[in-house]
């Protein structure tokens, strides 16, 4: 009897925790989830990047995350340019021409840095922009190679 009530209360607590978790998930998602698409920008998946590289050999990959996140690992040949440091001048140093292909990514779908960076790039006049919405999370989950120092 005792153990039954104990297990029942444990069950109840579990249910309560799940409930709180889902509620908080919905709230945070509503607040911080990045948009499904950005106008004038091509969205690509993890596999899409590999395919894109085969077509566009000089594709420039820009990592919009801060340095702390980059330590966890990054895509090979990506250039680190956190969104806070992104402006027309810093962009001109990594993207040679306005029509050069440039792909932006950050941690994942909850991360807004790549969105911010792309907006700046668009304003600066870059025309061939790609957005990897899944970010480093999706890359890792697919099991693709990355670089970690």
């Amino acid at each position: 009897m005792k153990s039954l009530s104990a297990s029942a209360s444990v069950k109840f607590i579990k249910l309560f925790v799940y409930f709180c978790y889902f509620v908080s998930l919905n709230i945070s998602a509503a607040e911080t989830k990045s948009p499904d698409f950005i106008e004038g920008v091509e969205k690509v998946s993890a596999e899409g990047i590999i395919n894109l590289i085969e077509q566009i050999d000089e594709l420039i990959i820009i990592d919009s995350r801060i340095q702390g996140d980059r330590h966890k690992g990054y895509l090979e040949s990506s250039v680190s340019l956190p969104d806070a440091e992104t402006n027309c001048q810093s962009l001109s140093k990594v993207i040679p021409r306005y029509d050069s292909a440039a792909l932006f990514y950050c941690n994942g779908i909850k991360c807004g840095r790549s969105v911010v960076a792309i907006d700046i790039a668009k304003k600066c006049g870059y025309t061939k922009l790609y957005w990897f919405r899944g970010g480093f999370d999706a890359w890792m989950k697919k099991g693709f190679p990355f670089i970690k120092r």
């Binding site: 990047i49 090979e76 190679p145």
Partner: peptide, 8 residues
């Protein structure tokens, strides 16, 4: 077996 070359 791991690939050599992260993207290429």
């Amino acid at each position: 077996l791991v690939p050599v070359g992260g993207l290429r």
